[in-house]
Nucleic acid binder design. Structure first.
Lengths: 215, 215
DNA sequence: CGCCGTATACTCGCACACGAGTATACGGAG
DNA sequence: CTCCGTATACTCGTGTGCGAGTATACGGCG
C-alpha cells in the first residue's frame, strides 16, 4: 500500500512486462526474469511472486486463461495480461521515469549516525567500503562489456545507470576519506573529545535537545 | 526479517541513537528525529514507530523504565537503551558504513522496462525528470548552505551524500538525453520499428524466450 | 465561559512480504 | 530397473509495515 498503485510491489511491473509477450504461468515468468538477469539487483522471492500474481488477478490486470495439469505435473495456472494490465504497466513506467523518488538508503542511515563511532574507526570502515565498491565496480564493468556483444543497448541501460551510481558513490567516499585522513574535516577535534570524555561539547547539548517535548 | 538484525527496520537504529541521550517515550523520539530533519528522506510512520519500539523492548535492546500518566495526559511509557541496545546500534552502524548494499531503485526498474514506450516519449519523460532533479538539487543545496551555519559538519554529511547522488543521477540522465535527442543511441531505429510494427525485430524474439520452460 | 482547532500520545487491525515447507517429474548413475 | 538428486511448481503461516482511528489537554477567540 506504499503508493496508490493497485499492486505496489515493483515485481508486479516486471511480471506484467514479461507476461505481455504471451500468456504464462508464474514460475515461467520468474525463470525468464532470472535468465535476463533482472534478479541481480532484486532477487525474486517465491512467496512474493505468487502473492503479486494473485493480486494482479484480483485487480483485473492479469487473468487466468488455463488452469489444469499437463501430464502429471503439479497443477499450474497460466495468466494473460488484460488491457487494463497493459495500461497499468505503461502508466507505471511513465511515472517511474519521469518522477524522481527519494528512496531510503542504508548508507545514508549509517552516515547520519556515524558520530556514535570514533573518527578513526569511521575512517577504517569507509576504507573497507571503498575497497568493496571498487571490486564490485570492476566486476560489473566486465560483465557489462561482455553483455554488450549479446544484447542491444536498450536492455543494458539500467545496468549502466547502476554502475554510474556505484562510481559516484565511490568518488564521494574517496573525497570524504581524504578529509578524514588529512585532518581537514571541520570539527574533527570536537568529535574526538566527545568520545574521550563521553560528553557533548558545549553548544551541542542544547542542539541535541531540540524538538524535545516540554515536561 | 530482511536481515539477521533482531529489528531490521532502519527506524530502529534512529530510535536507538536518540534514546542513548537519555530515556524517552516514543512520541518524544519521533519529535526529536523530526526536528533534526531526519524525516526528510524517511518520514516517520506512527504505526511503525510503536511496533519498532515494542520489538526493541522484546529483544532486550530497550527497556521500559516508567509507565504511567503525568497529569491527566494519555498514558505513556518511557524507555531506556540497554547495554545490548548500545552494542547493537554501534555494530549496526559499522555494518552500514563498511558494507555497500545494493538497494532496489525505482528508477532502475523504470529504465529496465522503458522499451515498452516509444523513444520519443521516453525522451520527453526523462526531460521532465531532469527538470525535477535540478529544482530539487537547487533547493537542497540552499537548505544545506543554511544549515552549515547552525550545525557542525558531522551532522550534515548524510545530506551532502544525498545531494551528491542526486547530482550524479542528473548528470547521467543528461548524457542519456543527449544520445536520445541526437540519435546517437545505438538501436534507436529498431526500437522505433518495434513500436510501429508491433513486432520484435528478428533476433530479439529468441532472446526474449531465453529461460522459458520447455513445453 | 463555553467552543473548537490543534498538539500530544498512542492503539488496532488489515494487507503485504517472504521464508520454509510440500509434492511431483525427470534424468543419470550404479 | 530402482535410487536419488535436482528442477519444477506452488502453498501456508508468520512477522512486520503502516494508515486510520481514538482520546485527552491546552490555548485562544468570541
Amino acid at each position: 500500500m506504499a503508493q496508490r498503485r493497485p499492486v505496489s510491489n515493483l515485481l508486479a511491473l516486471a511480471v506484467l512486462t514479461v507476461a505481455v509477450q504471451r500468456p504464462m504461468h508464474p514460475y515461467e515468468m520468474a525463470s525468464i526474469l532470472r535468465a535476463r538477469g533482472k534478479d541481480q539487483d532484486m532477487p525474486i522471492k517465491w512467496g512474493t511472486l505468487y502473492t503479486v500474481v494473485r493480486n494482479l488477478d484480483k485487480h483485473g490486470l492479469l487473468e487466468a486463461v488455463e488452469s489444469g495439469r499437463q501430464g502429471a505435473r503439479p497443477e499450474r495456472t497460466v495468466y494473460r495480461v488484460t488491457e487494463a494490465g497493459r495500461r497499468e504497466a505503461e502508466d507505471w513506467t511513465r511515472e517511474l521515469l519521469s518522477t524522481p523518488k527519494l528512496e531510503p538508503s542504508s548508507f545514508e542511515a549509517g552516515l547520519s549516525v556515524m558520530g556514535g563511532l570514533t573518527p578513526d574507526e569511521v575512517t577504517e570502515l569507509l576504507r573497507r567500503r571503498l575497497g568493496s565498491l571498487e571490486e564490485r565496480i570492476e566486476a560489473d564493468r566486465r560483465a557489462l562489456e561482455e553483455q554488450r556483444g549479446e544484447l542491444p543497448r536498450l536492455f543494458l541501460v539500467e545496468s549502466e545507470y547502476a554502475l554510474a551510481m556505484l562510481e559516484a558513490q565511490a568518488g564521494w567516499v574517496r573525497s570524504l576519506l581524504v578529509e578524514l585522513a588529512e585532518g581537514t574535516f571541520p570539527g574533527l577535534d570536537a568529535w574526538r573529545d566527545f568520545h574521550r570524555t563521553g560528553r557533548m561539547p558545549p553548544g551541542l547539548a542544547e542542539l541535541a535537545e531540540r524538538g524535545a517535548t516540554e515536561e
